[in-house]
């Protein structure tokens, strides 16, 4: 009887793992449930800053060489010396990561 109880516990664990695994492909929708409040993204072009929509921002940030932490936000660039770069806050960066965008933070 103890054996059956143990087997049942293992089966319950297996059900839990398989259920979680089954939900994994739905993680693509993670971006839509991630917190978008206070997500900020700017494109800076020779000192002039332009507000960028968050989804376009994630797409662009993914293509940057890297994102470097500054005192307040993150600066994402193709070249560290470039006059054109993105400034994103932690919420925006988190949103992009949850959405499956490859964000390279240094």
């Amino acid at each position: 009887m103890k054996v059956i109880k143990t087997v049942n516990i293992f089966l319950a664990i297996a059900i839990l793992i398989l259920s979680v695994n089954l939900m994994k492909p739905l993680s693509i929708t993670g971006s839509s449930v991630a917190d978008l409040s206070d997500a900020e993204c700017y494109f800076v072009n020779s000192g002039v800053s332009n507000d960028i929509p968050i989804d376009g921002c994630c797409y662009e940030v993914q293509k940057q060489l890297e994102c470097k932490k500054t005192s307040k936000d993150y600066r994402c660039y193709t070249s560290e010396s470039s006059e054109r770069y993105y400034v994103v806050n932690a919420n925006a960066l988190n949103y992009c990561k949850v959405g499956g965008y490859d964000v390279k933070i240094i």
């Binding site: 109880k5 087997v7 089966l11 398989l18 259920s19 089954l22």
Partner: peptide, 16 residues
């Protein structure tokens, strides 16, 4: 317990 085990096995098979 045996009945429960049968149910659990069926659920595992469906999930797999």
């Amino acid at each position: 317990d045996v009945k429960l085990m049968i149910v659990l096995v069926v659920v595992v098979i469906i999930l797999i």
